[in-house]
Simulated scan of single mutants.
Amino acid sequence: MYEFQCVTASYMLSLFTDDLKIIDDKLSREVRNVILTQFPDRCPEELFVFLDKYWRDLSSEAGVVMNTCKEIDGEFIELMPHFQRAVATTIAESVVYVSFGSTVSISDEQIEQLALGLLHSRQRFIWVLKDADKGDIFADNENSTKQRKLPSGFEESTSETGVVVRGWAPQLEILAHPSTGVFVSHCGWNSCIESLSFGVPMIAWPMHSDQPRNATMVCEYLKAGVLVRGWDQETVSGSEVERAIERMMGTDDEGKEIRKRAKGLGEEIRGAVKENGSSKAEFDSFVQHITR
């Protein structure tokens, strides 16, 4: 369902003044004047509380239709994807989340191919690209100390559709967000549980240890994802990444069924920890056992 609002994008942005600090260097003086000018005597505090709750609740909607046009409001419309709650007003389940955890190192060649796959998929994405983890025993010493580099021009080419995060990212919040449509993951079990708990299907990219078995569990047994990297495969091509994203985000029956299956599992997992749920019962039984 879409929400109709007879306000401008500039007004909607004015509700995110704290978040504007993130892109302060992108704002012109004129934009700052429109968005940041305060009118404390014109709007009661109760209304701000109501509006904040309103925009948070709006994240469950498919989108917002505003009574404006690019000719008038274009600069402000372009700024809206920078904000989480604003992004939530775009089409739900449209974002590809990519993160390989803290114990995985991938080559420069693989980074380039992954970047190409994301670029050509034309999907919105959040890519957590950390420096190679020095604690990864499977990475060579050279790769474990150097900065991860993206292909030249990649970030500029995807500035309106993607975000590259270097360092820590709030994974649980990202997976819980209604705009997240699929998780490209190394399939560490914590990541698998977190993704499935929120009903987010996976593109499985196992690297080592328990990950290939976890990927098999998710993709073949639970049928809540697709495998993009074979266990013996050195490099996943950009076209393979693109095809995997299309399979998961597309409109064909396979993708729909996988997404439906993941959503169902999410409901079951969340139900398990509620009162009378299986995990809650097991935990209570364990507490009784160790305290008897």
Rank of each mutant, 00 (worst) to 15 (best):
T89R: 00
T89V: 12
T89C: 14
T90K: 11
I91T: 15
A92F: 11
A92Q: 14
A92T: 14
A92P: 14
E93T: 11
S94K: 13
S94M: 01
S94Q: 04
V95N: 05
V96C: 00
V96Y: 03
V98R: 05
F100G: 07
S102W: 09
T103R: 15
V104R: 01
S105A: 14
I106A: 03
I106Q: 06
S107R: 14
S107P: 05
S107Q: 10
D108G: 04
D108H: 13
Q110A: 10
I111A: 10
E112K: 15
Q113C: 12
L114C: 03
L114H: 01
G117N: 03
L118E: 03
H120G: 12
S121Y: 07
S121T: 13
S121K: 12
S121R: 14
Q123C: 13
Q123N: 14
Q123A: 03
R124V: 03
W127F: 03
W127P: 01
V128L: 10
D131T: 05
D133I: 07
K134R: 12
G135I: 07
D136W: 11
I137Y: 13
I137P: 10
A139G: 11
A139Q: 12
A139L: 00
D140S: 11
D140G: 12
E142Q: 15
E142M: 11
N143R: 15
S144V: 07
T145P: 06
K146C: 11
K146H: 13
K146Q: 11
Q147W: 03
R148A: 13
K149L: 11
L150H: 05
P151W: 03
G153D: 06
F154L: 04
E155K: 08
E156Q: 14
S157C: 13
S157R: 14
T158G: 05
T158V: 11
S159M: 14
E160I: 10
E160G: 13
G162N: 00
V163Q: 15
V163M: 15
V165I: 07
V165Q: 04
V165L: 05
R166K: 13
R166E: 02
R166M: 01
G167P: 07
G167Q: 07
G167Y: 05
P170G: 14
P170L: 06
Q171I: 02
Q171P: 04
L175E: 09
L175H: 09
A176Q: 05
H177W: 04
S179A: 10
S179V: 08
S179I: 06
G181K: 06
V182G: 07
F183L: 01
F183N: 05
V184N: 02
S185Y: 00
C187F: 02
G188V: 13
W189T: 07
W189P: 09
W189Y: 11
W189F: 10
N190A: 14
S191A: 02
C192I: 10
C192L: 08
I193M: 14
I193D: 02
E194V: 04
E194R: 00
S195R: 02
S197Q: 03
S197F: 06
S197K: 07
S197T: 15
S197R: 12
F198K: 12
G199L: 05
P201G: 02
I203T: 09
P206C: 09
P206L: 01
M207Q: 15
M207F: 08
H208F: 08
S209D: 08
D210A: 04
Q211Y: 08
